[in-house]
Write a protein that binds this DNA or RNA. Structure first.
Lengths: 344, 344
DNA sequence: CTGTTAGCGCGTTCAC
DNA sequence: GTGAACGCGCTAACAG
């Protein structure tokens, strides 16, 4: 049996040793109230003597009703989430706007969600399977911000013109003379399914970004063939691209730049030239400096700004304000991966 | 003046409405103790009536002494941290090992560190500027795990053979006949400095990964020219590579694969062929499938496993166990970017 | 199976 | 400038 380890000291113990009251000691640490230098010194000395590290964050957050933590919900495995440069860019913007006194809690799935001690929560591209969790947060007066999600009650929306952007890309191809176009999409659910899109799957889906972008394309090419990828990556683009090329389209619309790069790679492997034999467009405006062989035709979206906007919204909501929803617009980048279809 | 908003309900209010004691209500929610179905139903009904979302996480964590949160310290801006695939892989492994009842709190810099309500903390490639923060956590009995950091007292180390790996790459080049070799390194500090490495900078540095990898190279090529990059990215590799090529080395050792890809790109721009005119090696074993034109000669490190090991260590430490430090080994991947130096 | 009794560690009134 | 008291919301022991 070891000798009893000395219990972790608390504010009260420090105050007692310093010969002051707990409230005085508290002020000495927070610096919030008027405390004489002599008293503060005494308190700090006592703290050092007891090896006291300062107020316990858990108790602070209970008392203050704030934890200084904002939750970010990805719904995907972290793996997937971080590999998507758009998510990373959004996190960047978010972290940047929040500053260093607020930190980000990464949340995935629905499990730990409700028991996370967060002051506000940001949903990034989440499906409506989150709506139960959202209810919990609403009940707790925890502000909820959703980036590119289906409109949900009591949730502040940060949106992107996914429909219009995709439509614009489709029209661009149409104006070049393309009519046989295939689409490589982002996932429609969390199943990591790859392959052709069935009606059931499409109707069951509630991943807003994917469905909106597809709607945009269909508003121009109603009958475009659709191949679903299992995620936003070059590898998935290769797989889906290979499948999509089977029907010999003259152009492929990929729902992300990463997918587009994969599609191009698949096309090159089949001996096709881009854009001479095949036009390819992406979406996002990822910077692939130095590694992507082509200047991709795409829509550039302000991903960092989306993150910033979410951060600003969180701050405003926590301050009791009523910020407005924000809508962002993507910009067409002509690039060099589209051309008039080759007449065979 | 608005009508007083009904205060947020708490467990006590629910218990009162249900006609049971607070502790019974608590059990009804946590499911921890034996509660009759009838009682539980009453409690749940009362909760619904009051729009009560369940126990407050902040109070729970104070009472239990656990928050279910593990902090991850990056020391870099999130921007940089996420853009490095090795960090992402480690986060992957970490999150995976922890499971869904524990979430990750992203922490950067030293500010919010001490006031984060974490159960344990993982330092990822941090310099010893973190030692003050480490002290605080030690005082609070918060376990600290450090991945690739200088050995610190009371900190569980997860290490990688950076020295040996770099040495092995250097010997590989040496055995091919190279003698005029340059090194493109990762940063030596947080300054985003680029350029030649001064003695002061080198001595002031405490970024373990960088210094160890450099030591490994120097153990073979003592006088190799050294160019410092401002981060691990292709862009930085281009800049540093261009600088390093000025002295016409026959081989360049880049301290990361991303840097190596940049170096190759710079070489190609100068009309050099790789590996005919210039050998290039990297470090990490990043998968650049489909986008990198070359099969890079490099050391493949088990990044995901490092993250897993950190997660397992955290769990063990929280369970009061005393896990041992872990050392990982990288594996040589021959690749196709090295060859015998061209005789001019 | 349920109720009672105590705090967890702190910040915040108010007096003095 | 400082101290006394109270309560944030919950849960772990013990009774019954």
């Amino acid at each position: 049996m070891e000798p009893t380890a000395s219990a972790r000291p608390n504010l009260a113990a420090v105050a007692a040793l310093a010969g002051v009251s707990a409230s005085t000691a508290s002020l000495a640490f927070s610096g919030a109230g008027p405390v004489s230098d002599a008293t503060r010194a005494k308190v700090l000395a006592a703290a050092e003597q007891l090896d006291y590290a300062g107020p316990d964050p858990r108790a602070q957050s209970l008392r203050r009703g704030r934890s200084g933590i904002i939750g970010v919900v990805m719904e995907d495995r972290l793996s997937g989430a971080f590999r998507d440069p758009m998510n990373v860019a959004m996190l960047d913007g978010l972290a940047d706007e929040l500053g260093s006194d607020t930190s980000l809690l990464l949340l995935t799935g629905t499990e730990a969600l409700a028991s996370a001690p967060v002051d506000a929560i940001v949903l990034m591209g989440c499906s409506s399977s989150m709506s139960a969790a959202v209810t919990v947060f609403r009940q707790r007066n925890v502000p909820v911000i959703a980036v590119e999600a289906e409109p949900l009650d009591g949730v502040l929306a940060i949106d992107l013109d996914n429909f219009e952007g995709s439509r614009l890309l489709a029209r661009h191809l149409e104006s070049l003379g393309h009519s046989h176009v295939a689409v490589v999409t982002l996932p429609f659910d969390l199943s990591r399914y790859r392959g052709p899109l069935s009606t059931e799957r499409e109707e069951a889906s509630d991943i807003f970004t994917t469905t909106e972008r597809l709607r945009g394309v269909r508003s121009v090419f109603a009958d475009a063939e659709v191949v679903v990828a299992a995620g936003s990556s070059v590898e998935e683009g290769v797989v889906a691209g290979t499948a999509a090329l089977a029907s010999q389209p003259t152009a492929i619309i990929a729902q992300s730049d990463l997918l587009a790069v994969g599609v191009i790679s698949a096309a090159l492997d089949l001996g096709l030239r881009v854009p001479d034999d095949l036009s390819v467009v992406g979406f996002d405006g990822v910077k692939l400096a130095g590694i992507a062989p082509h200047d991709l035709t795409t829509m550039v979206q302000p991903a960092v700004e989306k993150g910033r906007a979410a951060g600003r919204a969180a701050i405003a909501l926590l301050a009791g304000e009523h910020p407005q929803p924000v809508s962002f617009t993507s910009e067409f980048h002509p690039g060099a991966t589209t051309a008039v279809p080759r007449t065979r």
